[in-house]
Each structure stands twice: as structure tokens, then as C-alpha cells.
Write a protein that binds this DNA or RNA. Structure first.
Length: 153
DNA sequence: GCCAACGTTGGC
DNA sequence: GCCAACGTTGGC
């Protein structure tokens, strides 16, 4: 089982949007970065857990937890010519983009990036590195447990 | 709005 | 295959 962090802009898809989704589940489609795709396609399994992170907003930070509930399958939006995620180079025989589905475990209090930066134990987290732009990043098990303790404290 | 980081594109 | 230009991300 692995741990992850999923970034989302709350004005596009927030933790509350996930909570309001059918079965509190959503397809994590629209990813158009090969590294993030490969994490979903090659490394994620059912039961993997993830922090849900709000970015590009007044208070960026971790705001909930989710679980992978369906392994990677071809992202439907790549075939949809009306979608902003349409990829003319993709076709049904050779899909380029894949997505998993995630389900809300629970909302948490907002654990801001400012607070995360205060813990030396977390300084290696990808999300805290300058210029970090990857929308899906692995989270170290030690970091996962440490953050859980912060949230329970 | 600024700026740094970095992925992608395309000419050669 | 190199590399400059460009676009996007995202914290501040």
C-alpha cells in the first residue's frame, strides 16, 4: 500500500465537491503530465491512501483524506473533442492518459502549507520544494504517519 | 502581479 | 539529439 498527495484547485474541484460526488467518489481525470500519469497507471492500487490538497487559493494546504477505489483505466476526456482535455494524438486503441478513481475517507481540518513548513520532519516533502508543480506526488510512510499525528493532536 | 521552476514543443 | 522559446503552475 502506498501513500500519495493529490493537488486540486478548490475553485475547480474542492474537497467539498468530492464529498458531494456520487458515492463520494470521482475519476481523477484530466491529468496531462506523464509523471503523474505513471504514478496512477503503474503504481497505484486499490486501498492506497492520499491527502487531498488545495492549491492556488488563499489558504493552500491539506484538507482531507481519500482512498484509491478503482485502478487506472483510460481517461475518457482524451477522446472527447469537446473537452478541454481532448488529446488528438490519443485513440481508443492507443490511449495515452489514464486515471484512477478516489473516494473520500474524511475531511480534515485545514493543515496549511505554512504549518507544514514548520516541521523539519516534513522538509523533504515534494509539495514543499520550490517550483513543485506535480499534481500527484508520493508521500513517504513516515511523513504520512507524522501528518496523521499532527491532525489528531 | 511577480517570479521561479520545469515540462513541452519545434526548428535545426 | 540539442536547446531556445514558450506555456503553465503555484506560492507569495
Amino acid at each position: 500500500m502506498r501513500y500519495w498527495l493529490f493537488k486540486s484547485e478548490p475553485n475547480k474541484f474542492s474537497i467539498d465537491d468530492l464529498a458531494a460526488s456520487s458515492d463520494q467518489t470521482t475519476a481523477w481525470d484530466g491529468v496531462r503530465n506523464y509523471q503523474a500519469r505513471n504514478f496512477m497507471w503503474k503504481q497505484m492500487n486499490i486501498g492506497d491512501q492520499a491527502f487531498f490538497y488545495h492549491s492556488c487559493c488563499p489558504q493552500p494546504g491539506i484538507t482531507g483524506m481519500a482512498e484509491v477505489t478503482r485502478p487506472a483505466y483510460p481517461d475518457a476526456t482524451q477522446f472527447d473533442s469537446k473537452s478541454r482535455y481532448h488529446d488528438p494524438k490519443a485513440n481508443l486503441e492507443n490511449p495515452r492518459w489514464f486515471n484512477v478513481e478516489i473516494t473520500l475517507i474524511q475531511k480534515t481540518r485545514l493543515l496549511t502549507i505554512k504549518e507544514l513548513r514548520q516541521y523539519p520532519e516534513l522538509k523533504r516533502m515534494r509539495i514543499l520544494q520550490p517550483g513543485n508543480r506535480l499534481s500527484i506526488t508520493p508521500v513517504d510512510p513516515d511523513e504520512w504517519q507524522f501528518i496523521l499525528r499532527i491532525l489528531k493532536a
